[in-house]
Design a binder for these strands. Sequence first.
DNA 1: TTTATATTTCAACTATTATTGAAAAATGAA
DNA 2: TTCATTTTTCAATAATAGTTGAAATATAAA
Lengths: 109, 109
Amino acid sequence: MDAVTALAALAQDSRLAIFRTLVQAGPAGLAAGRIGELTGIAPSSLSFHLKELAHAGLVAARPAGRFVIYTANFATMNALLGFLTENCCGGNPCAPVCTPACVSEKEST
Amino acid sequence: MDAVTALAALAQDSRLAIFRTLVQAGPAGLAAGRIGELTGIAPSSLSFHLKELAHAGLVAARPAGRFVIYTANFATMNALLGFLTENCCGGNPCAPVCTPACVSEKEST
DNA sequence: TTTATATTTCAACTATTATTGAAAAATGAA
DNA sequence: TTCATTTTTCAATAATAGTTGAAATATAAA
């Protein structure tokens, strides 16, 4: 995982909105068009940003008929959170360092 | 907290290295020059990036003699992590949603 | 096959960001 | 006061990113 790539993917209004929408949608995901409705992003722009998120490994695409279903990649998200807080305070007992924040059904193996 | 601002601040090699160094240094923080030594970033560039991080609320500066001590802002960091995972899977029982990853002494009140 | 729907691709434009080196400001020591 | 150290500011340069609208692709329905 490239943390800078993932962070850059999230560091943008449209993409952050898309990603959070998918996190909240859970492992079932949402069709591209539905994401567009929920976020108010134009199709062209939406496609661009979904690709950026996919490139960063933060979302996955799965064709379903003439729809494309996008889902958040919870493993990447958790890895990113872990990376940010890695070895916090030099490992000294400073806090409850608990990282995984969301685990989809498929990834709970 | 503006999440996009914080993410943008972290979405850059030098700044991510600086921030993680400060997270690991804990609440004691580090002088600017020491951060430069540890990360290999030139003074001018370092000053620029520290300001970006401070603007985003991710680090704080504290003068000490002719040094300036920088510290990570753990509250902002935790708020950011929480924002990313907010209402994960629509609130359904999908995972151990535990967010705070690091709490400095001063912020444990 | 024809039509409608869903999504992606492309080109053009505008705006923002990172780096460098030299100089300036602020503080403390001699 | 004079000198050395630490950090910040400034100007110039080079590279990257987001939006829009029209057209293209692909799948499904009539």
